[in-house]
């Protein structure tokens, strides 16, 4: 394949990564923005979403679309409930102390991961996509007869992959509407501004925090359900999304949703492209170093404004 088609394919793969990462990162960002805690177990909620999707699709028979539709609803709900429980049992009791919360969520990370290993097992398991038609992509290039349209071998995508990108965009739009339009979104932002004041006004901060934590996890799980037909479910699959979400959230500016999405697109795309042309490891080295340097020299994120 020539360079042009190759780049195009890499961009497409990058867009899928970006779509899923922006969902996962949005969850992390919302939790940080409102609760001011960093959830290191976030990647495991992503993993649970994928594993949950496998359970549901296996349990529901018939056309794969039925199972998948069920998974889209059940898996995020299940993961959200687990996260809310973790919040009540652990984070709440720590008073959301930033450092102790990080340490505790590291513990939660291991617990979720290892319990999954004990129940789901060490194998990667596939989930069938609800639809999956191959779409060959034409390419405009200079051939023997001048400009001509060709169909390079291997240059193709599937309807499902395109649907993932569209779905992620729709979900993000929905999340944004949810946060800015609904009463719950309003309450969430009220507690973000001032926890004590919110308590004084009778806003049930404790309940809201549990829901925010569950909500953040559920969005990550939703991203995982979308990607699992492409990627397979595995008990260690949470690590990469966690690191990528960290990278994205920090570069986009902690707690800023628009910044997070811009950064997700940027990181997802460049990760895809660098991975194809150089090595995936090199791409990750650069990204992690970028995060470290952003935090050191521009803690408000690349796109955030400096705070007074």
């Amino acid at each position: 394949m020539d360079f042009g088609p190759h780049l195009f394919l890499a961009t497409l793969e990058g867009a899928i990564t970006a779509a899923v990462i922006s969902l996962t990162a949005a969850g992390l960002s919302i939790v940080f923005g409102i609760m001011r805690v960093v959830n290191v177990a976030h990647g495991e909620f992503f993993m649970l979403g994928a594993v949950g999707a496998w359970w549901v699709t296996t349990a529901v028979g018939g056309h794969p679309a039925f199972g998948f539709a069920a998974a889209l609803i059940a898996a995020p709900l299940f993961v959200g409930a687990i996260a809310a429980l973790a919040d009540r049992l652990v984070l709440f009791r720590l008073g959301y102390d930033p450092e102790r919360t990080i340490v505790a969520t590291i513990g939660i990370l291991y617990v979720i991961q290892q319990v999954t290993l004990m129940t789901f097992g060490p194998d990667a398991r596939p989930v069938e996509p609800p639809f999956n038609k191959r779409i060959p992509i034409p390419w405009l290039g200079i051939g023997e007869n001048g400009l001509e349209l060709t169909w390079p071998w291997g240059l193709a995508t599937t309807t499902y992959k395109l649907a993932v990108i569209v779905a992620a965009a729709v979900i993000l739009f929905g999340v944004w509407q949810f946060l800015s339009r609904t009463r719950f979104g309003l309450l969430m932002r009220a507690t973000q501004l001032d926890r004590e004041m919110a308590t004084a006004f009778g806003i049930p901060v404790r309940k809201i925090y549990a829901r925010v934590f569950g909500f953040g996890a559920a969005i990550a799980a939703l991203g995982a359900v979308l990607i699992v037909p492409v990627q397979q479910a595995h008990y260690l699959m949470g690590t990469d999304p966690l690191l990528l979400s960290f990278i994205v959230v920090i570069i986009g500016g902690l707690g800023s949703l628009p910044g997070t999405i811009v950064a997700a697109v940027l990181i997802g795309m460049s990760d895809g492209i660098i991975s194809v042309f150089f090595s995936p490891t090199l791409a990750k080295i650069l990204a992690t170093l970028l995060v470290a340097f952003v935090l050191v020299f521009r803690p408000q994120g690349l796109f955030g404004k400096a705070q007074a």
Binding site: I250, A292, V296
Partner: peptide
Amino acid sequence: LALRTSGVAFMIVTLMFAQAGFLTALH
């Protein structure tokens, strides 16, 4: 570098440097 930050940022910066080191070993 990391001591230009504190608290949670210090944790994440050190985590990222270590991750970069780990990946470098793989690379």
